[in-house]
Amino acid sequence: MSFTIYGAAGSGSVPVEAAMTLIGLDYRVIEAVTWEGEAERDKVAVANPMRQIPALITPAGETITESAAILIWLADAYPQARLGPRLDDPRRAQFLRWMTFIPAAIYSMFWVRDVPSRLVGEDAAAQEELKRRTAERIAECWRVMDSQITPGRFLLGDELSVLDLYVAVASRWTPRRQRFYAEAPRMAEVMRRVDDLPELQAFWTKRFPLGDDA
């Protein structure tokens, strides 16, 4: 039996899909572009009452939501893929720290940005100011993370992890890669390395191409 993931190209499902691709799992994607309206969000309701992506259905029928939780679960459930430090690994604490920092500090900003009227109503000027401020907040968070992490070949050392996949996707969102490179120079080279992984080239092209912002 295969996995089912509710997701969309360019979304928070992409690092999950990338991890499953690297592990070699059989999965299908139900496209649900939730930022495009109620009908798209309703597609996800059967799996996640929050109507948010990603939502993963395991072959056993279990539902897992929240991108960080899914990524950590995949790394732990498939240790042979070596996509995350084990419980007794000294890198585990920092792995958990940054895997939760991204959704708490960065990913959460996009619930606001996708539909600004949720917080500021229909005032166009207020919506633009909200978008500007959240973009600055995201840039600040990348700067803080860069100042606190000491990458090797990858973010946690010499081995690729789901953290690298998570950052590779989230850093493609607003304020986009060029700003990320400026704010997070130590992580920048790592992300270029993740972008260039041969085993993910076809995947990135299909699910989240970088375009001119690389």
Results as ranks from 00 to 15, higher is better:
S2N: 11
T4G: 08
G7S: 15
P15F: 08
V16R: 10
M20F: 10
M20I: 04
L22P: 13
Y27Q: 00
E31K: 06
E31D: 14
A32N: 09
V33D: 09
T34W: 03
W35I: 08
A39S: 14
K43L: 14
A45G: 00
M50A: 09
Q52G: 01
A55Y: 04
I57T: 15
T58P: 08
G61F: 03
E62D: 06
T65R: 09
E66N: 02
S67Y: 05
A68R: 07
R82D: 12
R91K: 13
R91N: 08
F95P: 00
R97I: 10
F101C: 00
A105P: 01
Y107F: 12
F110K: 05
W111H: 12
S117A: 13
R118C: 09
L119H: 13
G121Y: 07
A126Y: 10
T134C: 11
E136Y: 03
I138D: 13
A139S: 14
C141S: 15
V144N: 04
D146V: 11
T150F: 02
L155K: 06
D158W: 08
L160D: 00
L163G: 04
V167H: 07
S171F: 07
W173A: 06
T174R: 06
R177H: 10
Y181I: 14
A182R: 13
A184G: 03
A188P: 00
V190N: 06
V190Y: 11
D196Y: 01
D196N: 15
L197K: 08
E199F: 03
F203L: 02
F203H: 13
L210I: 09
G211T: 09
